[in-house]
């Protein structure tokens, strides 16, 4: 069994518009808010349940989002101990980012090489 991966700390910096996650393996992930919105895993954003996958859509990394209420985080909350949910300034709040999904979404060069 693979050791479970989970965040030790999550910091949403509304000023820098970056969400920083420090993982239990010490990896440091920095997610621009726009990437998190582009990768919103909810049914509405993924175009219905038939398109829902447990992995991020590869093209989210080439999506560039403008600064707008849709890419501004209002609040971040933990969902139990397995996921994160983000409430956006435009009222959208249905996406549940589980730790695995969030880690696969890490935009750092090391993770993107894999």
């Amino acid at each position: 069994m693979v050791a479970p991966i989970f965040p030790k700390s999550i910091t949403a910096d509304k000023n820098a518009r970056v969400l920083t996650v420090i993982w239990n393996d010490e990896h440091n992930s920095q997610y621009p808010f726009g990437l998190l919105r582009a990768a919103c895993p909810c049914a509405e954003c993924r175009g219905g349940h038939e398109n829902m996958r447990s992995e991020p859509d590869p093209d989210v990394f080439s999506v560039r989002m403008a600064e707008s209420p849709a890419t501004k985080i209002r609040n971040v909350e933990a969902v139990g101990s397995y996921a994160l949910t983000i409430e956006w300034e435009d009222g959208h709040h249905f996406g549940i980012y589980n730790w695995r999904y969030l880690r696969l979404l890490c935009p750092c060069p090391i993770c993107r090489e894999k």
């Binding site: 030790k8 700390s9 999550i10 139990g80």
Partner: peptide
């Protein structure tokens, strides 16, 4: 197994 992480929201 997975303790709830420390969550910080830095206001804008």
């Amino acid at each position: 197994l997975m303790p709830t992480p420390i969550l910080t929201v830095i206001p804008a």
